[in-house]
Amino acid sequence: MIYRTLFGAPGRRFGASLKELEEMQQRMDRLFNGFRDRSAGRVGVGAGVFPAINISEDTGAYYVSAELPGVTSADLEINVTANQLTLAGERKISKEAADARYHRREREAGRFSRALALPGDIDADNVKAGLADGVLTITIPKAEKAKPRQITVQ
């Protein structure tokens, strides 16, 4: 009874301490993964994934948009297969003076590659891509067998 009065219910603080330890471990994992990715020559933006990509769909196609600031169409390679899109390229940033001291360095340069599994089969012959204002937009038509069909009830 005296223990409970002085220190609170046993286990209440212990659970909070475990939660704090788990959060600290997650932060450390993110920190060390960022160092590992940079030392391996990978480009990391935000959560360590570049470029940031959105994938959406309607009944006829999938739409992929990727943020690629500073990347030209000549620096991109886009490949599609039955249900996979691979986006690769190189982000180039102009060099600063050799004696430049950074106060903050968040813009990285280098090669990148993302392979994305699409939810269904695609028509690889009719894929279209465009790059405007640093945003790559890819329209990927669905294969005929992947499109929904209206069935008439008799």
Rank of each mutant, 00 (worst) to 15 (best):
S65N: 12
A66G: 05
A66P: 07
E67F: 00
L68G: 04
L68P: 01
P69I: 09
P69K: 08
P69W: 07
G70Q: 03
T72C: 03
T72H: 11
S73W: 10
S73E: 15
A74C: 00
D75T: 03
L76K: 06
E77R: 13
V80G: 04
T81L: 01
T81R: 10
N83F: 08
N83W: 07
N83D: 15
Q84N: 12
L87W: 07
G89M: 04
G89R: 01
E90R: 15
R91C: 10
K92L: 13
I93E: 06
I93G: 01
S94L: 10
E96A: 14
A98K: 14
A98Q: 09
D99H: 12
A100Y: 14
A100F: 13
R101M: 08
R101Q: 14
R101P: 03
H103L: 14
H103Q: 09
H103P: 04
R104D: 09
R104N: 07
R104A: 12
R104T: 12
R104G: 03
R105D: 11
R105Y: 03
R107H: 04
R107E: 13
E108G: 01
A109P: 04
A109I: 01
A109Y: 00
A109T: 11
A109C: 00
G110T: 02
G110I: 02
S113T: 14
R114C: 12
A115L: 14
A115G: 14
A115C: 09
A115R: 15
L116M: 13
A117T: 15
L118S: 09
L118D: 07
L118T: 09
P119S: 11
P119L: 10
D121R: 15
D121P: 11
I122A: 02
A124H: 03
D125N: 12
N126T: 00
N126W: 02
V127A: 07
K128W: 01
G130H: 02
G130V: 09
G130T: 12
G130D: 11
G130Q: 09
L131K: 06
L131G: 06
L131T: 04
L131F: 06
A132V: 07
D133S: 14
G134T: 01
G134D: 00
L136Y: 02
L136V: 07
L136W: 08
T137D: 03
T139I: 10
I140V: 12
P141S: 06
K142G: 13
E144G: 05
K145P: 04
K145I: 13
A146L: 07
A146H: 04
A146K: 05
A146M: 07
